[in-house]
Design a protein around this nucleic acid. Structure first.
Lengths: 247, 247
DNA sequence: CGAGCACTTGATCGCTTTCAATAGCTGTGG
DNA sequence: CCACAGCTATTGAAAGCGATCAAGTGCTCG
């Protein structure tokens, strides 16, 4: 409620994702047009934002919080197929219904655009179409990166891969650079990590314990993580760490 | 050589992928502009078209044959992250170097565009940019579909999933519809299937034998496959087959 | 005919899953 | 304030699936 009140009156100028979201390349007049079709919505952790198969009448950007895209088989096996961070785009222009479940992993705020007007606007606004193409290509790269993780890495490497992705993202936000320990809170439950990694939650728990025992990571409580040496973590992930940073 | 000779003189009008490739929405004048920057290249089965990390000076479309996108870890584990069929696009506008190995799985013909002029053209040709966005979104969907296969399916389900994808694609090309048996030749070796599915080639072989024993598939030789009942195969794949066809 | 390649099949190993018990934490109600 | 439910997470023991190691088959081509 308070969140909603806060965001109801936000305009694009002081939007935290202004320079990274689908609107990143927009000019002033284009932003003004966007403002007329946008609205904010808040979701609580655990809430399902969109059900797979449901008709979609909006698209939008994650402003704050984390959401996940998941697929579920009839017997209940589920696989997370995307992790949506602030500035990531939700929904597919030109598609009527949602292909995946979208679930708020943490409390979440979204900047939504009514779908029809947004599609129309894409037609005459190359800045938006072009930015969306860039972002989609990036997501495709991320998905392919993840296919390697899912298909070929061991449980230990999978956990290390996930932690290093989160760690490097957080390190790039607070840019003290690559030196020194990285500290963050895990935004995912063990079960969500398992769904992301194609493991069981027990295996996730065991491998995290093992990495802790080997001092690759330090844990305070269940969620607060310190990475003393990101290089060692990336070795455990099986990533090529020699000569240049990934991403 | 003969292939090259044939394709050297092909123009877009009688191109077999004219209506599905990145140029699908182009007008006559746009095609003419494309013709000035395009050229054909042929590759033999097994040949590497692009090495990961190499500078890319072209992008292009698969005209005929099949190529695969693969990632390889330092210790040699490899994962196929994309299967490129005729009309699929290769390369990423705006990126300097290749992110994956691209390998010709069969003999292959590509329609290549010089990268710089193509990027320039994208800027002033919404038909191309828009089509590329559509295709990239489709590829993203396919990649996410594959993440479920890699992360959550059993070896048997993985094989059945791959076979059903190939079978349904072939069935849609020779549109006698969904009725009756589907017959095709496997375009992939057991090893390539293993790399696609995150398995070993021995497991692939065993599961194919098992599906044959259970009459889900019929085999003549190693590669010629008959699917008597696509519905049964899709059940084995763990896909939801009730109420409507997938895709 | 023998070399090389793609594939199959068998035996065994080991990693991850499965099943199960337990701990720690939070919030609720007597 | 304590008891208890509900949830997340940890840990142990056993089972199972796919990987690994190892022959062996069938085919093509020189």
């Amino acid at each position: 409620m308070t969140l909603k009140a806060v965001y109801e009156h936000t305009n694009c100028d002081d939007c935290p994702i202004r320079h990274r979201a689908v609107c990143a390349h927009c000019e002033k007049d284009e932003l003004e047009e966007l403002e007329t079709i946008k609205y904010y919505r808040s979701f609580e952790a655990g809430q399902t934002i969109i059900w797979s198969g449901d008709p979609m009448n909006f698209v939008g950007s994650v402003v704050s919080g984390i959401a996940s895209l998941t697929q579920t088989m009839e017997d209940g096996r589920t696989q997370m197929v995307g992790l949506l961070l602030p500035s990531d785009f939700v929904g597919r222009p030109g598609r009527e219904s949602a292909a995946y479940d979208v679930v708020a992993t943490t409390d979440l705020v979204m900047c939504c655009f009514r779908k029809k007007p947004f599609e129309d606007m894409m037609g005459h606004t190359p800045h938006i179409a072009h930015r969306l193409l860039q972002m989609t290509l990036d997501e495709l790269d991320a998905a392919r990166e993840w296919m390697l993780v899912l298909g070929r890495k061991t449980a230990r490497e999978k956990i290390a891969s996930l932690l290093s992705i989160i760690a490097r993202r957080d390190a790039s936000i607070q840019p003290k650079g690559m030196s020194g320990p990285i500290v963050f809170d895990l935004p995912l439950t063990r079960e969500a990590m398992a769904d992301y990694l194609g493991l069981t939650l027990e295996t996730v728990s065991r491998q995290i314990s093992a990495l802790k025992k080997d001092q690759i990571i330090l844990l305070e409580g269940k969620r607060h993580v310190t990475i003393p040496d990101i290089g060692r973590l990336m070795e455990e992930a099986g990533d090529d760490t020699d000569g240049g940073y990934l991403n």
